[in-house]
């Protein structure tokens, strides 16, 4: 793939990361709101929302690199009735606007908690639809490697996996920043991380297992498919085998690192600040693994016909 072609993986990965991060963040906000002060929790989530909004901006900007005429991209929404691509763009814009609204509210209208909550769930709804539309684009009969509902599931799995790890990394970085600045909410941040670490780790491990299961199903489907599908599979297991194996290894290594670090933190009662390096490394490994996966996704397709 040349640089222009890389714009597509960048776009899909970043948007899935943003949607997944928002889902995980809102789950933590909902669950932690009953245990801690909701006002304090809202203060903690402001920085992750900034990152989510920034990511969606970068993704949208990056997506234009793979277009022949970037300035005509808005015309794509005209085919919303028949085109999944148009729907994707519409939901992308809606998600972007909702995220921006959320960003404004969490920084400048912090007292409007109900509105923030509602807008968050609305943004998640747009995000979920966005990923669905994004996946449906690839479900076309001429692309044997893509034409499977496992693609939809794998996109959601990627979103949640990257989102969970991103939120974990952001929370730990925020905690470290608060510690350096000697902020007054260090204890609260530590408690929230302790509270959510186990859940995030379990979620990540389950998603990694699910991701591997999807890979297995996809290879089985390709093996049982027609000549084109088998050709795609041979590409995956021949030319791209090192990358294929590397992706699996990276996912496993990330899970092991995360599980080891979190168990160590709970057992030895270590400060959550210690999680910074292992969580960051896990996040990086999963991100690299998923980007390789997306590369393989695009690299192994073989068009039937014209």
């Amino acid at each position: 793939m040349n640089v222009r072609e890389w714009a597509l993986p960048v776009y899909t990965i970043l948007l899935q990361l943003a949607v997944g991060a928002l889902i995980v963040l809102w789950l933590i906000r909902y669950l932690a709101g009953s245990k801690f002060s909701p006002r304090e929790i809202d203060r903690i989530i402001s920085n992750p929302i900034l990152v989510i909004a920034f990511t969606s901006v970068v993704a949208m900007g990056g997506a234009h690199f793979h277009l022949s005429k970037p300035f005509h991209s808005f015309l794509a929404v005209l085919n919303i009735k028949s085109s999944w691509l148009s729907r994707e763009i519409v939901f992308n814009i809606l998600f972007f606007l909702a995220t921006m609204g959320l960003l404004y509210l969490t920084y400048f209208q912090t007292h409007r908690r109900k509105l923030i909550t509602a807008l968050g769930w609305l943004a998640i709804l747009f995000g979920v639809n966005l990923i669905y539309c994004m996946a449906r684009i690839y479900l076309i009969p001429t692309q044997a490697a893509w034409n499977s509902h496992t693609v939809i599931i794998s996109f959601y799995v990627t979103a949640l996996m990257l989102g969970g790890m991103t939120i974990a990394t952001l929370m730990v970085l925020d905690l470290k920043f608060a510690e350096i600045k000697k902020a007054d909410d260090i204890e609260l941040r530590s408690q929230v991380i302790r509270y959510s670490s186990a859940g995030l780790t379990c979620l990540t491990v389950v998603l990694v297992i699910l991701s591997m299961a999807i890979i297995y199903i996809q290879t089985r489907l390709l093996a049982q498919g027609d000549l084109i599908a088998r050709t795609s599979l041979s590409l995956l297991l021949d030319l791209y085998l090192p990358l294929f194996v590397m992706r699996l290894i990276l996912l496993v290594c990330a899970s092991v690192t995360l599980v080891y670090a979190v168990i160590r933190m709970y057992r030895l009662q270590i400060k959550p600040q210690w999680l910074m390096t292992p969580v960051y490394v896990s996040c990086l490994l999963i991100l690299v693994g998923e980007i390789i996966g997306r590369f393989l996704f695009y690299a192994t397709h073989i068009r039937i016909g014209l």
Partner: peptide
């Protein structure tokens, strides 16, 4: 500056992947 690695994690991941390919 504690946020710099966080900001750079996506570019780093893409560069690593790009290098790998």
């Amino acid at each position: 500056s504690i946020f710099i690695p966080g900001i750079l994690i996506v570019p780093i991941a893409f560069v690593i992947t790009y290098a790998t390919t």
